[in-house]
Nucleic acid binder design. Structure first.
Lengths: 155, 155
DNA sequence: CTTCGTGCAAACTGTTTGCAGACCT
DNA sequence: AGGTCTGCAAACAGTTTGCACGAAG
């Protein structure tokens, strides 16, 4: 059984919440994904196992996870202006998105620390968080000779 | 007279386009702004000078600028999921957003070059663009004792 | 005069919400 | 039994579009 299911179960009980069939299904589906899915993508997958599942239930479950700091959301520069849901790790991480296949790769770097400090000194500000997003072509898409999109993937 | 107005005028003529009162007003208003406005913000300001102006004209003009690579768009992690329009400079730049007052500061850094290269080597990918977004408190808001938002400004 | 652009209202996309019934404990 | 959660449909926010009139060249 997945960690997410256990974790949410624990927290739900503390507030009188319930672990329903739908929530379990959604959490389990989310755990199988390495990519950062949209609500629709997650919905499409979970629905294969329960055709009666409703999109609003997916959203409600994802917002629940968000409140519990178990996922975070982000809008990449894609054609469709939709949120992608990122299973939250304890450590700050950054993203690469392939402009051809839309897959997301996470990575870490400590350069960001330097950048934050530089900025704080220069503008006398307080920086709390920072995120880097890279856009380009992943190995597979590069090898398949995918063109770099005109406009480099930005909308 | 603003550079944007001149530049767009030139490009419009090349395609048989027209410099209308509304477009001139919108461009002039955009030029007075240092912040990265939303369409609504720009609309509200421009409307002070022409109350008959319509929001869809603002959008159409901004999309025109976007096609001509004179602005780029970006969605920050704010409560409202709205695009902000960034007058495009030739050089790659990055952003800081104050989580209290929503003002945006632009900055440059060459650390991003390192990060791109590291990523390319590590994942055998091709990185085309990269952007850094920092969130925190600007000088003014920090001095006014504004609290760092729970959740650090991320939605 | 002939296009191109505007205002208006309606459509559209992604996400949220009110409600009545279903389900968990 | 009681409150929580779901599915549905309708609302919502931000953005886009079709159309008929108005204005730029």
């Amino acid at each position: 059984m997945g960690k997410l299911v256990q974790e949410i179960n624990k927290r739900l009980r503390a507030h009188g919440g319930r672990m329903t069939i739908q929530r379990r299904l959604i959490l389990e589906t989310l755990e199988t994904l390495t990519n950062h899915p949209t609500a629709e993508e997650l919905f499409a997958l979970a629905r294969q196992r329960d055709p009666a599942l409703n999109l609003s239930t997916v959203y409600r479950t994802l917002r629940l996870l968000e409140q519990e700091d178990l996922v975070s959301t982000r809008i990449f520069n894609e054609e469709r202006r939709q949120e992608r849901f990122d299973p939250a790790y304890p450590s700050e991480h950054h993203h690469f998105m392939c402009t051809a296949c839309k897959s997301v790769i996470e990575f870490e770097t400590d350069s960001i620390g330097q950048i934050k400090m530089q900025f704080e000194r220069r503008f006398d500000a307080r920086v709390e968080t920072g995120s880097i997003v890279l856009y380009g072509l992943c190995v597979q898409c590069r090898q398949e000779g995918n063109p770099t999109k005109p406009g480099t993937g930005d909308r």
